[in-house]
């Protein structure tokens, strides 16, 4: 993973909401408190209503204290003690040998950003980054993660800034339902370093060429992202978002309206200014 130089601008509201969300992440690593606790505590007066309303929606339903019964030792069979770093914070768990990393994240560590789409390595919704590499948490046993550094969608933002890939997904509407999105973004972030390292893909024109940082074509991005299924069909927007971060240049997306006077084309950047 690397920090990209280019920063995409958020609207004020988005930044405000983000700050709320990220403050929580900070608290999470400091105190071990969960996002949910933060959501319960968030003061309605402290954020723009757009932000608070979105948070409030979730606050209403995430109402119970966290005392995770599934973590109780009586329910653990063939227990394995594991200490791993998740989003920079050390986590110590006693897990059932059968527990996958995905279930450990979701059911034990309150990190529900990683999603269970198929549980069999056929969709990519559970993609996380371990030691800099994108992998499937549904096919990784938690027991094998001793000493590993795991980054999930919750750990991508730094300080009060989104990872550029997250911002690009918002800008390019690289999702609809949002369920595959955490996996898509983790996958895309790792893809950036793979490209930088000159790793090849099945559509690479000449794999014999010496590995060096490469500019990926659209088809290269598509092939490298094909392990992340998006049933809403946001693929073209996902490719645009990745291309923008990968190249550091604005990628135009057009909205076309045909009227009596012909087709009017608006570009993304322009519309962003107007719209936001």
């Amino acid at each position: 993973m690397e920090d990209e130089s280019k920063e995409l601008k958020l609207t004020d509201d988005e930044q405000e909401l983000l700050t709320e969300l990220l403050n929580d992440s900070a608290k999470l690593s400091e105190t071990g408190k969960s996002r949910r606790q933060f959501l319960r505590n968030v003061s309605a007066a402290s954020a723009a209503i757009l932000a608070t309303q979105m948070l409030a929606e979730q606050k209403i339903v995430a109402y119970t204290p966290i005392e995770n019964v599934s973590g109780a030792s009586s329910a653990i069979e063939n227990g394995v003690k594991v200490v791993m770093k998740v989003n920079g914070a050390e986590k110590s768990l006693n897990v059932d040998s059968r527990m996958t990393l995905l279930d450990a994240l979701r059911e034990r560590l309150e990190l529900t950003g990683s999603k269970k789409g198929c549980d069999h390595g056929q969709c990519g919704a559970c993609t996380v980054i371990i030691e800099g590499r994108r992998v499937l948490s549904c096919l990784t046993l938690a027991a094998t993660c001793e000493g590993k550094e795991v980054t999930t969608i919750e750990g991508l933002a730094k300080g009060d800034a989104l990872h550029p890939m997250q911002a690009a997904f918002v800008k390019h509407d690289g999702f609809q339902c949002g369920y595959c999105t955490p996996g898509q973004i983790c996958s895309a972030v790792a893809l950036l370093s793979e490209a930088k390292n000159g790793e090849a893909s099945y559509v690479t024109a000449d794999v014999r060429a010496k590995a060096r940082a490469i500019q990926l074509s659209d088809d290269e991005i598509r092939e490298r992202m094909s392990g992340n299924i998006c049933r809403c069909g946001a693929y073209p927007n996902i490719v645009a978002a990745i291309k923008e971060v990968h190249t550091g240049k604005d990628v135009a997306q057009t909205w076309q309206f045909a009227g009596e006077t012909g087709v009017a084309i608006f570009e993304n950047a322009e519309m962003n200014k107007e719209g936001a």
Partner: peptide, 12 residues
């Protein structure tokens, strides 16, 4: 190798 599976699976 690159024709098989996905980047995530090949990493594992």
């Amino acid at each position: 190798i690159l024709a098989g599976a996905s980047a995530q699976i090949r990493n594992m």
